[in-house]
């Protein structure tokens, strides 16, 4: 990783940041193994330069960004977000990046574009999880995710290229990843190579694997349990030790109430 030029977050976050050491050693990135410490162990040789991020589909001006452009095309800013994993743990992360909306606007989406589909790099040579079903946890690759266009255009939705002032470590989704802070972590797809505007709801990886457990929306919602565990509370990963009282109540939309209007009139028990 190397240092980045960015505008620091302009307001202090009320919650303590999760230490950098924890953010870069506790990861779900099945392309590098299913254990929480597998990505940090297996991803260090991951070569992200050259990179190519293609923005395409129902847009007037499709384009491709190379590695350097990821950091130069849009002004970078720091955003401190809570990140809530579907496994009921959470962190507070100082991301660096730019709005997904800025990127999409550059492509000039057509009015027929209703959804945005994302795809992670497919490279079994570099990603052991893609090479072997055993190492990759039995999910289908490449990893795919999707958002409704209004979710994608929401000012909170971030494309991140760094954290804690530096470029992203490979295990956190280098060189560029999505961050949707009001949704469970698995929506925030890593190491993106393709962003496609589409008129149909795109398939999403965890939904393909277990539709009854992982919905398309995956909004953080303490009132809708995962079929196999409660989502009412979460354990905040912090610097304090084993005995710290870090179990906290989970908030609707992970506390980002400003997105509630996106889902007005929807039954969030059905569209979980």
């Amino acid at each position: 990783t190397r240092a980045l030029d960015y505008a620091p977050a302009n307001q202090l976050h009320s919650e303590a940041l999760t230490p950098e050491e924890k953010i870069i050693t506790h990861n779900n990135f099945y392309e590098f193994g299913t254990g929480k410490s597998d990505p940090v162990e297996n991803a260090q040789q991951f070569d992200v330069n050259p990179w190519s991020l293609r923005v395409e589909g129902l847009a007037e001006d499709p384009f491709t960004l190379d590695y350097d452009e990821l950091f130069k095309q849009f002004p970078l800013e720091e955003r401190i977000y809570r990140m809530r994993c579907v496994e009921a743990w959470s962190m507070v992360v100082p991301w660096i990046g730019f709005s997904l909306a800025a990127l999409l606007k550059k492509a000039k989406p057509l009015s027929s574009a209703k959804y945005v589909a994302f795809e992670t790099l497919y490279d079994p040579k570099q990603m052991p999880g893609q090479k072997s079903r055993f190492a990759g946890g039995g999910i289908e690759y490449p990893y795919v995710e999707g958002l409704r266009i209004d979710e994608a255009m929401h000012p909170l939705t971030l494309l991140s290229v760094g954290l804690y002032g530096k470029t992203l470590p490979p295990q956190n989704g280098a060189p560029i990843r999505l961050v949707v802070p009001w949704k469970y972590g698995f929506k925030s797809i890593k190491s993106i190579t393709r962003i496609r505007l589409t008129d149909k709801r795109p398939p999403t990886t965890w939904n393909i694997l277990a539709a009854s457990e992982y919905g398309f929306y995956a909004n953080v919602n303490p009132t809708v349990d995962h079929p196999r565990w409660s989502q009412a509370s979460e354990r905040r990963i912090s610097s304090a030790g084993l005995f710290s009282r870090n179990r906290i109540d989970t908030k609707m939309f992970n506390g980002y109430d400003q997105v509630a209007s996106l889902y007005q009139g929807m039954d969030l028990r059905k569209h979980f």
Partner: peptide, 15 residues
């Protein structure tokens, strides 16, 4: 290792 916080990002899950 867990008590001295050397058991990865989330020592609870590891334990």
């Amino acid at each position: 290792q867990a008590f001295s916080d050397q058991l990865g990002g989330d020592p609870v899950t590891a334990l």
